[in-house]
Design a protein around this nucleic acid. Structure first.
Lengths: 223, 223
DNA sequence: ACACGTTTTCGATTGTAAGACGAAAACCCT
DNA sequence: AGGGTTTTCGTCTTACAATCGAAAACGTGT
């Protein structure tokens, strides 16, 4: 019996041109030549899966541009990789919308809602990554990982709309995030657009660490 | 270099006597003799991690008594098992409070808030399992996995209180779960207790599958 | 210069859900 | 029959999100 190998894979997402995009590289050699693959690789002997995925992503994009990385799930179907037993630990990675990392020649961004032919079970992993992102946008401050350091409320609305897949209200977005303490004004403004309008104010996220907004009734200790 | 092995482990929880308990077995042989270990074992060559953990739990408890199993996280510290590189996929397993599975001689239940000396990183895995359970109690119907098929609101309150670690209000618990459509009345009642009181009504969970109650503002599509 | 359209920002109103409280119902015991 | 106990149901208050609309601040065209 072949030994069971372990690989780490990441669905790396960003917003660009009001679309949610994923990082993929095109395979040259078999198996699955020409199809598109998630970044990642074999788990090294002396590293955790978290360290491994960050190390291997550094070959594709600058590590400092990754604003968030979290474990998604284990994919372990025996036949997910033909010919070799390989278990994969999948991750979600996020990159701000204003950074444009240099990419290897075989690597580029693809809109998640119109993916090319993907290798193995990588499409399922990507969809799981998108679902996790969408869920966390609603009950955490994870938007900081997609947004630039400073932004207008309209820009943030476009980012949230693209990630969630439906239009959100700028008014409510600001009020909700402000009430949660996730957003704060910088005091600065930028020039109005070509069609005029009031010059928008610049905001930033209060924290760049993931924080969960506790939400529900039953879970709150009495007080 | 030794090949990297893969094991599956489960924090199996239940409520008994108003306490949250975990299933542990006592190791006989090294490493870590006499310390207490989570159920699980090596991943087989032709099974997914989900199948593997269910197969291996069947050796400890009847599979049909497991009302819920879900993936928790991967634990992959290189030195988590001395002498051999072993990656673990950890699971959360739940058992209703009314079932009492037959256990092997080396296996028994321990309150999670006063654990014995555990082996390897198993205490951390158990605490992660408890956190996952506590979080999901608040925004899903996962209580069905801890409760018997029919129960009074007071019994359900005791289950939730023990799992969450603080007293919850029976009134609010019933209203919250009812409004979410998770709870329904059976129409039956049971006799009042020895000290009198109105005979409580029996309820049941509407569904025995995990359902998430969508909650927050930003995530709701307009309409 | 002035009116008009545009975009942002802020406040007020409405609606929904949860926490707290208390009254009524239904039982036991003495 | 009356008092104590537990459950159940309703009401009140609070918190937060969604909607609406007005005001602020700008550019453009006449």
């Amino acid at each position: 019996m072949t030994p069971t190998g372990h690989e780490v894979l990441a669905g790396v997402l960003r917003i660009r041109a009001n679309r949610l995009q994923a990082l993929l590289w095109q395979r040259a050699k078999p198996p699955h030549p020409n199809r598109w693959s998630l970044p990642g690789g074999r788990l090294g002997p002396d590293e955790t899966v978290e360290y491994s995925i960050r190390r291997q992503l550094a070959e594709k994009v600058d590590v400092r541009e990754l604003t968030h990385v979290e474990q998604l799930s284990v994919f372990s179907s025996p036949d997910r990789i033909p010919g070799s037993r390989t278990v994969a630990t999948a991750f979600l990675g996020l990159i701000p919308s204003d950074t444009d990392p240099e990419l290897p020649d075989d690597t580029c961004w693809h809109p998640v809602d119109s993916l090319p032919e993907t290798a193995f079970d990588h499409e399922g992993i990507l969809l799981a990554a998108r679902e996790r992102l969408r869920a966390k946008l609603s009950y955490t401050n994870i938007g900081f990982a997609l947004a630039p350091p400073k932004f207008t409320v309209s820009e943030l609305r476009d980012i949230y709309s693209a990630a969630l897949g439906y239009r959100v209200s700028a008014t409510n977005l600001q009020r909700v995030l402000s009430r949660r303490g996730a957003l704060e004004a910088t005091g600065q403004t930028v020039a109005a657009g070509p069609s005029g309008g009031r010059p928008p104010a610049l905001f930033r996220f209060t924290s760049r660490d993931l924080q969960i907004t506790d939400a529900f009734a039953v879970l709150r200790p009495p007080g």
